[in-house]
Design a protein around this nucleic acid. Sequence first.
DNA 1: GGCACATTGACAACCAGTTACCAACTTAGT
DNA 2: ACTAAGTTGGTAACTGGTTGTCAATGTGCC
Lengths: 152, 152
Amino acid sequence: MNPTKADKLTSIALSVFKLNGQLIEWGNHFTQPHGLTSARWQVLGAIAMAEQPPNIPQIAATMGVTRQGVLKQINLLVDEGLVQPQSNPTHKRSPLYSLTQQGQATYQAASERWQRHTQEMAAGFSASDLDAAIRVLTAMSQLHHAMGESPT
Amino acid sequence: MNPTKADKLTSIALSVFKLNGQLIEWGNHFTQPHGLTSARWQVLGAIAMAEQPPNIPQIAATMGVTRQGVLKQINLLVDEGLVQPQSNPTHKRSPLYSLTQQGQATYQAASERWQRHTQEMAAGFSASDLDAAIRVLTAMSQLHHAMGESPT
DNA sequence: GGCACATTGACAACCAGTTACCAACTTAGT
DNA sequence: ACTAAGTTGGTAACTGGTTGTCAATGTGCC
């Protein structure tokens, strides 16, 4: 018998688990020459994409992880000189973070490699399939967001 | 400007990270009444789905993780009485694993709850979108599999 | 101003994965 | 039959996430 839509959702969930592991592994490999890991690269990205220098809870919210998880990576990135804290005028204990010169250079180098990679991959996919995948993944994300409250 | 296919791939990768975290969190919550976690539930599933009782490397291969990771969960599951080892005629050191009575009952109860959940969710999705999402995710998985060799 | 409450950084404990390594077992080549 | 290479269970150290908790800071209400 043909798979039901429910079966397909199960299959997608399993694919997400598998692909997540592969992407992390690949990202670690990929960012190693730049002295990064998948986790730090994502944090750098969250800071680089923000309009204003964010504080830790804001970074955590955009990444969808807890602020404690971001805290660990941020402190390491500061130690490595890729990210710098600046005093937050509106909250004495919660500094805002921005990329250092070195952080910007590192992030940009990794970004360019990633872009080349996605452009190579893109040839094998149809735009409509990609749009459908985005629709499905974001919808699943929102459904689960609705029932399990977001991280504290 | 409209997003390129490469941009869409980036967006999908970020969605996969986010959804993976949400699915694990939700799975932990979901399986808690059955005394399980996401990780153990997946291992039970790999055993339940196998045609023959598998050994640890076989389970790891179907899950896409390392055998050491599976080993930890298996030993816990044996301690909890959900999984039982049976001596492997063809390899003295590598037992084959199957579900105990209790393991089958637990897995089936969780499976039924999961099926109800996916059936509720399924209503909001179109079958063609789901098919496209599966195509994209499995293709991405295979691309990354091709360049980064699988776990040892 | 003062007091309840939420936010935030920080730390500890834990979970689940990884890599690296060792010892035991199996397999293959000769 | 022997030996070299591969497979497997097991352990340890590490990474990166989680929850729980605490103290310090901000916010809002009276």
